[in-house]
Amino acid sequence: MAQYLFDSERYCGEWRRHWIHVSQWLLALAGGTLLLGYVVGAMGSVPYVVGAAAVLWIVLLLLAGFKIGDWFFDKFVLTDKRVMLIEGIVTRRVAMMPLARVTDMAYQQSPLGRVLNYGTFVLESAGQDQALREIAPLPYPNELYLLFCQVMYDPEEMLAVGEEGD
């Protein structure tokens, strides 16, 4: 993480997107595994069908593994000067917005988001279209919202808390 920070910048935290972000791939992988087991059990005497099902399952395993790995390495980072979204395994993409340019911030939670404790953050910046506008789904949105507001509106208090913990 240090490679993305200025020397004068204070790191406030980083978060991985909520696991719901990859849930469809986890479900597809579970369903594909069950389907492969059914095909092997029902068509075990037809090797071409079993072989084709196994190849399709391996392709699904590779795709799901890549998506889950991509989710694992993606980070939402908050510092005392900016907010960043770092994405990608093979190709790295870093989107950034200075905190001084954030004019409005909100988070939204669907009913499922309220139950599983995730939400979508929406950042506005002086009427301009930004690369970092919506960040979804982030875990613990209420706590993250409060921390974000504290960093934006009371940075001296954040520095005092950080110095007490050292």
Rank of each mutant, 00 (worst) to 15 (best):
C149Y: 03
W19E: 13
V22R: 01
P139G: 10
Y140K: 13
H21P: 02
I20S: 10
Q24T: 15
L5W: 07
E9D: 10
I86Y: 01
S23D: 01
P141G: 08
Q108V: 06
A136V: 11
V40T: 06
M152N: 01
P141S: 11
I20R: 10
S125M: 05
D70F: 03
I20C: 00
T120M: 10
G37E: 08
V151I: 15
L26K: 07
G37L: 11
D104S: 05
A64L: 06
W15L: 07
I58L: 12
S23F: 14
E163I: 12
I68H: 08
E156H: 04
I89P: 00
R17W: 08
M105V: 12
G51P: 00
I58D: 02
Q24D: 15
M152I: 11
V83S: 00
D74M: 03
I135L: 07
T33Y: 05
Y48A: 13
L61C: 05
T103H: 02
P47M: 06
V83H: 00
I20K: 08
P47Q: 11
K67I: 10
F72G: 03
S110D: 10
P139D: 09
P98L: 04
M1R: 09
Q109Y: 14
A106F: 02
Y4M: 08
R16F: 04
Y11E: 02
E14I: 08
